[in-house]
Design a protein around this nucleic acid. Sequence first.
DNA 1: CTTTTTGCAAATCTTTTGCACTCTA
DNA 2: TAGAGTGCAAAAGATTTGCAAAAAG
Lengths: 133, 133
Amino acid sequence: MNDIRTRRPTKQRTAIEADLERYEEFRSAQEIHASLHARGDKIGLATVYRTLQAMVEEDLVDTLRTGDGEQAFRRCSTGHHHHLVCRDCGRTVEIEGPAVERWAASVSAAHGFTDVAHTLELFGRCAPCGAEG
Amino acid sequence: MNDIRTRRPTKQRTAIEADLERYEEFRSAQEIHASLHARGDKIGLATVYRTLQAMVEEDLVDTLRTGDGEQAFRRCSTGHHHHLVCRDCGRTVEIEGPAVERWAASVSAAHGFTDVAHTLELFGRCAPCGAEG
DNA sequence: CTTTTTGCAAATCTTTTGCACTCTA
DNA sequence: TAGAGTGCAAAAGATTTGCAAAAAG
């Protein structure tokens, strides 16, 4: 296990951070890798994975699994929130749920659990897709 | 694309349905396959995948991705609920969250989404593990 | 007898790992 | 120079697919 604070600011790492900075939404490691190559940064796929994984551990990026089995990443946004994803077109809406946060905290406490985190994603069909479907 | 209604009730399909019936929680295809073999049903892994996939399309089973990248399945349950899992010992508590269900419904509606499903899991440390940790 | 379903193995795809090499501190 | 970080290719794991054999209608 590496100490997070000893990580070196390499060209690759910097490029990945910059790339993440340019996007708000979740993208798969493969997409980020492609994005980097498109910009001319020849970074190995393995490095992208390793760096992204490290960033997750450093709490610099959020991660989730797509319904497709891919792991997706995005830079940590300021506020903690969840997603409402259209299962047809992939359109994603960020939603905040203070109600859910409160509920999660109280339920956890009621069962004696501490240090609780949660994952919550909503999948549905957005208005446009529902109309044409 | 096959017509759902023309699917034949084979021994394998029946065994998988029976196995799903015996469990309430989500299990990976691999676990279900192992479970079947443990009971003496020698069903090919590919068949398990194919059948499970078909059942998802028929809305007979729910599916989600684990943080591990595996796809998990369970029979469509009568009572919808979530899980509070101890990240140390794995102890799992089933929790119902009418508040969350309501919240999810209203948020979805507010954004014009229909046919919305959600996944919600809580991960923390249970009292015993927190005490000794 | 015709068509669907199965099993097996090979193929895919995403992610991880081994290792020699490069670059930073 | 020593050790962290990288690239490449091979390895792992989960899931899918091709195809001939078996089973259902």
